[in-house]
Simulated scan of single mutants.
Amino acid sequence: MRIARSVASLSPVDVGDHVCWVAPPDDDFQRTARAYLQDGARIGDKLMVVGAASPAWREFQPSQALLVDPVAAAGGAGWGAEGLVTLVRREAETAGRQGFRALRVLAQMERVWPEGTTPEQVAEQEFRLDALIGDGAAAMVVCAYPDTVFLPETLVQAAGVHPHFSGRPERAPSFQLFSSPEGHWTLSGVVDADSADAFHTAVIELLRTTPTLRLSCHGLELMDVAGMQMLAKAARAFPDRRILVEGLNPTVRKCWELLGFAAPSVPVELAP
């Protein structure tokens, strides 16, 4: 099972990791990005930067790094939810054929997302990307979301749907929802009033394409009333789908029942 974790730097990032980096100002960003790419060059990874040319990786071009600028490629509009996923899938396969250990990606998300991108679009793409990496693609992806560019609600959404987080501790997500083997989705941390909207968006996006959503909650510490309301609301929006919740702690389970959510009108099943 993939385990959620926060990383103080990008040095521990390895194959199979999907990291939300709430990026600092320019100087710190360039220094950290350069170190991340240098680590990959040293151990035999194929380097790919999704974004604009920058001193942080200029030294790797053209022989050591592939630079793809979504803004230039899309005529200034950026990409939709599938663009980055398709690119990573293709280049990871190419890297394997070329003899690289893995594909190492640094994505400047302000270049990926067009203006006006919604939290729902962010959740959709990041879930697709996480499923790709979690299913065994020989890749690691760091999604850099500058905190001076994105709205707080977008940052909460982005961080909550990555297994790993890097950035200032106060920016760390309260919950994390990410793919696990065998069709499970792991939910960990705390779902409270501050994160309930982002959690609802995430569950809605999963239900759009998942007949049975299996939530593994062994790492869930707390879900308050707001979180439970949003889980029930998402379930009611897709009455033909099924949510199976596994590993829920006794306290949350009891509150769910006392608040009346254990009812036929809420298609959420709590596994024994």
Rank of each mutant, 00 (worst) to 15 (best):
V141Y: 07
T148A: 15
F175K: 03
A202Y: 04
S195W: 03
V141R: 07
R242V: 12
S195P: 04
P173W: 08
L215T: 11
G160E: 05
K233T: 11
L129F: 01
C217P: 05
F199N: 02
A144T: 10
A138I: 02
V142P: 01
G219I: 06
A144C: 15
G167H: 01
L151C: 09
V156K: 14
G136P: 06
F178L: 07
S166I: 00
A137H: 02
L213Q: 11
S179I: 01
A237L: 10
A235M: 05
K233F: 03
F150S: 09
E246Y: 05
F175T: 09
V190Q: 09
H162N: 13
C143Q: 11
A235W: 00
A131G: 11
A235K: 03
H218P: 00
A193T: 11
L222T: 14
E221L: 12
M223K: 08
A159Q: 03
R128M: 14
C143S: 15
I243G: 01
G189M: 06
V191R: 01
G189P: 02
A144N: 08
C217F: 06
I133Q: 06
A172R: 14
D224H: 09
E246Q: 15
Y145I: 07
A139N: 07
V161Y: 02
R168I: 08
L222P: 02
A172G: 12
I204S: 10
R128T: 05
R208F: 07
A139P: 06
T148C: 12
W185G: 04
H200P: 04
V203N: 03
A196E: 10
E205N: 05
V225I: 14
T212D: 08
D194V: 11
S166Q: 13
V149E: 10
Q157W: 02
C143F: 08
A196T: 11
S179Y: 12
H218D: 13
V190W: 04
D130K: 00
G183W: 06
G136R: 02
A159N: 10
R168Y: 12
G160Q: 03
A196Q: 10
D135H: 14
A131F: 04
T154I: 15
L222Q: 13
P239T: 10
F238C: 05
R241C: 11
H200F: 13
V142F: 02
L222N: 11
H162T: 09
R242I: 04
D147T: 10
R128G: 15
L177K: 04
L206T: 07
T201F: 06
A131V: 13
R242K: 14
